[in-house]
Amino acid sequence: MAIEKENFSRRDFIKNSSMFAGGVVFASLINPYKFVFATKQPKGKGKWYGIGIDIEKCIGCGSCARACKIENDVPDDPFFFRNWVEQYTITNDERILVSSPNGGIDGFKQPVPDEDIYKTFFVPKMCNHCAKSPCTQVCPVGASFESPEGLALVDQSYCIGCGYCVQACPYGCRYIDPLKGVVDKCTLCYHRLEKGLDPACMMACPTGARVYGDLNDKNSAVSLFLKEHNCAVLKPQLNTESKLFYNDLSQEVH
């Protein structure tokens, strides 16, 4: 019989297990967060992508959402988006009306007459490519991951389609592709970036409301955007370290 553990004494057991426990404690002292955010990349090496959106410049044409659907083969149905536009209207009697008919692809209708409007604006939405992304944290098989460039990507040939990441994303940026049975999301058009092209939404924006670039490069479009504007991220209380920065973000926007 292969298992001969008669002389494996209790003292040995205690010794070994305390060494193991000590190792774990020691490892967590060196980097206590490593166990929580295993996917977090050390900042400062290579590119670290960020996105800036200027709400003051968004005209709500929906070109970004349309281009995104074409570029990435997102299903045409009005409930799968990697990228969409919302229209916020705050009335004089302080009602907040939000709409995003077909993600803004077919244009918007203002639901209130001009004289009743206190404030109104468009907010384009897309993946925030969070540095501490709650979605990649919960992926059970490592199909959703943060690339070394700081992009939250999905390995669709490995995704099991459990939908846990869809639940974990606070911004509603993920969906399960019903035909493929796997999750799909914005990649910041990683395939275009690698070919030296701009992401489809950035390219399609007629007013230059969207910028992107390397946050480590202080002269990149997004770094200059952050320098020149007072920016805010969505849901900062969740500490996702979102890398999608909005200029002129109203507090009504969730």
Partner: peptide, 21 residues
């Protein structure tokens, strides 16, 4: 690179770009 398939990055990058600019 991390707890995921490293080749996936290349696979995503090799997708065809449709808008030529």
């Amino acid at each position: 690179y991390g707890p995921y398939r490293g080749n996936a990055i290349g696979e995503i990058a090799s997708q065809q770009a449709k808008f030529v600019q």
